[in-house]
Amino acid sequence: MSTGKICYQKFQYIVFLLPSFLGVSIFIFLPFLDSVRRSFCASGSGKIVGLQNYKVIFANEAFILALKNTGRFILACIPLLMVTSFFVSYFITKLKYIRLIKSILLFPLAVPTAALLLIWQILFSDGGYINNILAQHGIGEVSFLHSSAAFWVLVGSYIWKNLGYTVLLWITGMMSVSDSVIEAAKVDGAGEWKILTRIIIPNLKPTFYTITIISFLNSFKVFREAYLVAGAYPHESMYLMQHLFNNWFVNMDLDKMAAAAVTIFTFIFAAIVLLRRVWDKEM
């Protein structure tokens, strides 16, 4: 084999990787580095202003509100989703015919947000269907879209959409716990509760970690529902980071956006690293 050929083979990967890597660099990596640079510069003159832009956004009420709401949203919906989906999956694994249930649970993933807009209106408007039911039972009406209840409507729609996804992951995790271990525990007289807490749950730690990450990522997609139902300036309880970025984008507040983008990136990056740490230690 000639050295030319060896050389060619050694660097052959470049041919395969290059199209993707170039595109990703042009549209994501390099521009992101550019926004990091921008976040330290004044937008007009391009002079380096140090942390000035960061000071501005952290003094900005809208930014603080959006940060708080997004944080609150993530902290509310992830545990709720995890617990609900865990119990649903636990029940499902006890059943025989799970395919239909799985299909139904997964279906919301396929439903475009736009297709259900009017349905959300019918359900959650002040004169909507849910208020109709509440009124019939003598409970006062709730202004779902124009009060702090809006936040919970958003949490609900997130869970509606992501339950199937998460259940599927839990089920896969639970199925991988070997039957013989469970059988052995049963023979030793362990009850159902004991099997669940001592065998199944400890075996699900890796699943737990990945579900947290996936739920976290999907939580950003809830913007679609929030934006399409309530517009660019919804009730302040559901004013999320994504609304803020969008509104800054419309006003072309580029230096604020750059600083905020770097801040959010840092938060997410830290969260992922931290989760990984915790997970590695526990294993």
Binding site: D34, F245, A261
Partner: peptide, 9 residues
């Protein structure tokens, strides 16, 4: 999320 890279894109 997309919003973080929106500006750069």
């Amino acid at each position: 999320p997309f919003q973080v890279t929106m500006l750069s894109q």
